[in-house]
């Protein structure tokens, strides 16, 4: 419950400062516009559109999700948070905030892809939905712990994508595969291996994050 109050504080703060929301909205609009302009009248394959969806999602995550911890460090409020709650409570609150942000962001991106790209046709919605939910959770968990790590460093902006790329790569590759299956209309039973890879990734990242966070959070 206390984690929810950390989330509520962050959400109210975000609505007032618009730190992450503005960055994310601008990034999504600019990236999709650039893709649309560069495609022009050409027909692109369904697979390529599916790939572009995850490219936009990956880079949007890079532009906004680090705010959870970086904004606390930049404002100097980290110590205040350390004084009011345990590391587990703080991490859970920040994770809930990033999960909400990732889902809102990715729903908006997917919706824009559906209305703007004719070649973005999903034939198995349940498979795409499963990949979407598990993928978003994985992105949120990884982004949160990476944000906690880089918030303590000097070159935050550069380090975030550098550190995120190898950590998110197995997740993005699996999501690309599952999106391809969903476009092909393959059965969910035939994609169990990839779905289990996603579940394993989420569980491993979540466990490792909770174990690591205590050491990252304390000076």
């Amino acid at each position: 419950m206390r984690s929810y109050f950390v989330f509520r504080k962050d959400w109210q703060s975000e609505l007032r400062t618009r730190y992450a929301i503005n960055a994310l909205a601008m990034f999504i609009l600019v990236t999709i516009s650039v893709i649309l302009f560069s495609i022009g009248q050409e027909n692109i394959s369904e697979y390529l559109t599916g790939g572009l969806l995850w490219v936009v999602i990956f880079f949007s995550a890079m532009s906004g999700l680090s705010r959870a911890f970086v904004s606390e460090e930049e404002r100097g409020t980290t110590m205040t948070l350390q004084l009011v709650a345990s590391p587990t409570v703080i991490f859970s609150g920040k994770l809930i905030f990033n999960i909400v942000l990732v889902f809102l962001m990715n729903i908006a991106i997917t919706f824009l892809f559906i209305i703007l790209f004719d070649s973005f046709i999903i034939n198995n919605y349940s498979l795409f939905f499963a990949a979407f939910v598990l993928g978003n959770f994985g992105i949120a968990v990884s982004s949160t712990i990476i944000a906690a790590i880089i918030s303590k460093t000097g070159s935050k902006g550069t380090l975030y994508p550098v550190l995120s790329f190898p950590i998110l790569l197995p997740l993005i590759l699996t999501l690309l595969e599952l999106t391809k299956f969903a476009i092909d209309g393959e059965l969910i039973e035939d994609s169990f291996v990839e779905i289990f890879v996603l579940i394993s990734y989420d569980v491993i990242m979540l466990t490792a994050s909770y174990l690591l966070f205590d050491f990252i959070w304390k000076e």
Partner: peptide, 11 residues
């Protein structure tokens, strides 16, 4: 209470 302690300016 400390000089390093910072509260939330937006609240």
């Amino acid at each position: 209470v400390s000089p390093y302690l910072v509260l939330y300016d937006e609240f």
